[in-house]
Design a protein around this nucleic acid. Structure first.
Length: 418
DNA sequence: TCTGGGGTCCTTTTCCTT
DNA sequence: TCTGAAGGAAAAGGACCC
């Protein structure tokens, strides 16, 4: 038996990523309360980014839009520390935040910028450690196990190297946790924020993990936590000690087995270096709740626009799908979804619009709508979808696309298009 | 003037076919 | 022809995450 290298998995989390990127662009806002979020339309217009006669860092602070001037729906995506001191924070409604801190600068969410910096810091990581899994725009898992130096000080040396390389290239800081698996690495990365490095070994489970709240386990959200609390289980240690039969009774066989393994720090999942999207969607919340009949025209226009946006997303990214769905959020925040699967893969707005219209017909529309969304799932890379269609055609199946089109053409659209 | 948008995954229900 | 079982796919909902 040869000694296998110790499995060393890192979780890297950028520190206050969106806010930090904005402060790189607008250093004049450093130390001021800044809130990022809101309906993007209004905020985009308010920010005078179109003025190219001066650099971004030269824009006087007095010209930035303030939270007190914002009208409309929306929530805070993130806030700087200076703003948090006033009690505002993520997911808070902007109107409520404006009462708490009206003088805060309000910046729109600028995903293009965050994506740009995201690609930069990820490229730096893969130069050093190629086995990296994307977990959204500001987080990754990295497998240190086989990387030269990845075992030194349990991974701390390599973590330090990556932190330094990212900071030198982008000016951004991050926190890293290194552990035997993804589950523990994710928890470890939160131990020392910001700019922290935490190394967890198997033998640290009882001292470092078991005292933590169950909610710290990635996958235990507010609902599961409340159910655990009701059973008198508050910490991960208590969860580890819980009777498996009791957990199975309340959570079912699969979830209870997972809970038990997680509490004991066990997680065999691999670091996946690539993944294919499963669905793409667009949704929008209206400025005011809309009525299916009275606001027909407005709804129809939004509906069509969402379909066009999803189609454009699919085409730009090179995917086609055949399960088209709609999502409705009613005035009382209840959500309904309806799906409709069509015969042929598509990335065309008109086809998506027709199929989504079919799905929408089955949805209850007696209440005012707060949000409307359109989703395309069952995705395949466009080349594969086209090859598949060619294969089924030569195999002699009916021209499902034509059938579908003529069928849909006879259906009156639910929302009239204007 | 509470409560965004874009995803993934899992469970349960429903429907269809054999 | 009816009935029930079984299994799979699709649909619907929910929890969770960033």
């Amino acid at each position: 038996m040869t000694d296998l290298p110790l499995r060393r998995i890192a979780h890297l989390d950028m520190d206050a990523f969106y806010a930090s990127v904005e402060l790189l662009r607008y250093p004049q806002l450093k130390g001021l309360p800044v809130v990022i979020g809101g309906g993007r339309r209004k905020a985009d217009e308010d920010l005078m980014l179109g003025d190219t006669s001066r650099a971004l860092h030269e824009i006087p602070v007095a010209e930035f839009p303030l939270l007190r001037d914002y009208t409309g729906r929306g929530v805070i995506t993130t806030a700087t520390y200076a703003a948090r001191q006033f009690g505002v924070g993520s997911a808070m409604g902007l109107m409520k935040a404006a009462q708490l801190c009206p003088q805060a600068v309000l910046l729109p969410v600028d995903f293009a910028q965050y994506r740009h910096y995201s690609q930069r810091f990820k490229a730096i990581i893969t130069d050093i450690a190629p086995v990296m899994e994307n977990r959204g725009v500001d987080e990754v898992y990295i497998d240190f196990t086989e990387v030269p130096g990845g075992q030194r000080e349990g991974g701390r040396v390599l973590a330090r190297l990556i932190q330094k390389a990212i900071f030198e290239d982008t000016g951004l800081t991050c926190s890293v946790g290194v552990a035997p698996n993804k589950l523990l690495a994710k928890m470890a990365s939160e131990f020392n924020k910001p700019k922290g490095i935490s190394v967890v070994m198997d033998e640290d489970l009882q001292s470092a993990i078991w005292p933590l709240a169950c909610r710290k386990i990635n996958g235990i959200g507010p609902k599961a936590d409340a159910r655990l609390q009701a059973l008198g289980i508050h910490t991960i240690g208590q969860l580890a000690a819980a009777e498996p039969a009791l957990l199975a009774q309340h959570f079912g066989p699969r979830t209870s087995a997972w809970l038990h393994a997680a509490a004991h720090g066990r997680d065999n999942s691999a670091v996946h270096t690539s993944s294919e999207p499963v669905s793409m969607s667009r949704e929008t919340t209206f400025d005011r709740d809309l009525h299916a009949v009275r606001d027909r025209a407005a709804l129809g226009a939004v509906f069509t626009r969402l379909c066009e946006q999803v189609a454009a997303d699919l085409q730009r990214k090179g995917y086609m799908g055949r399960t088209i769905g709609v999502k409705l959020r009613f005035a009382d925040f209840r959500i309904a979804t309806r799906d409709h699967t069509i015969g042929a893969y598509t990335d065309q707005a008109t086809t998506i619009r027709q199929a989504a219209g079919q799905a929408l017909k089955r949805a209850p529309l007696d209440q005012r709508l707060r949000l409307l969304g359109v989703r395309v799932g069952g995705l395949l890379p466009a080349a594969e979808a086209v090859a598949l269609a060619a294969g089924t055609r030569t195999a002699g199946s009916a021209a499902t696309q034509d059938e579908h089109n003529s069928d849909a053409a006879q259906q009156a659209p639910l929302f009239s298009d204007i």
